[in-house]
Design a protein around this nucleic acid. Structure first.
Lengths: 89, 89
DNA sequence: TTTATACATTGCAATATTACGATTAATAAC
DNA sequence: GTTATTAATCGTAATATTGCAATGTATAAA
């Protein structure tokens, strides 16, 4: 996520901001809630559930993945899924 | 903060996203860290400390205030300050 | 190998955020 | 009153994000 003027702040401050931004959109909150509830999230399921376009869901999943918050699309096919990397057990 | 397509999500999901967005910029993270450390934040101090323009700091303070995360500018003069509303005691 | 299915990627348009200069408002000191 | 100081607000440019249609890729089934 491209923040401006990041050079004015510390690595830590920028890192905190980026993590917070991951939760800074209701679609991504909904994705994580769905994941917590079902342990799985499939693009097409989320499309049907949220009413956003497939490309949009894919984009949000990509952002969460790029931050290592979710793990996903292991198989590039119908079985695409994602899960928390940490199990919090 | 104006999110698009909020109608597709629950009140709760939108609320969580908005709170997260408050922390989704390094300047606002820095403001809160400063506040935790010193218990006070004065616009001019932050301007000198961060290197952002006065108007920009003022804007970030306004956003944090609008979310009731900080309380502030009680006196509209030189003594403008802000503090956490809850004391976490 | 064709067809169906499912997700990723690309390329835009619409929208939102960030940042700042200029201006305004409000107070304090004189 | 005037002046100095400080922060809020306005207007606007630059930048970033969101959302989607169209397209690409990859796999499975027929």
């Amino acid at each position: 996520m491209g923040l401006t003027k990041t050079n004015l702040f510390t690595e830590e401050q920028n890192a905190i901001a980026i993590i917070a931004m991951a939760f800074g959109h209701p679609a991504r909150v909904a994705i994580l809630q769905h994941l917590i509830k079902t342990n799985v999230c499939i693009n097409s399921t989320l499309v049907a559930e949220f009413g956003l376009a497939q490309a949009t869901i894919s984009q949000h999943l990509k952002e969460l993945k790029s931050m290592d918050i979710i793990q996903g699309t292991i198989s590039g096919t119908a079985m695409s899924y994602c899960s928390f990397i940490r199990s919090f057990n």
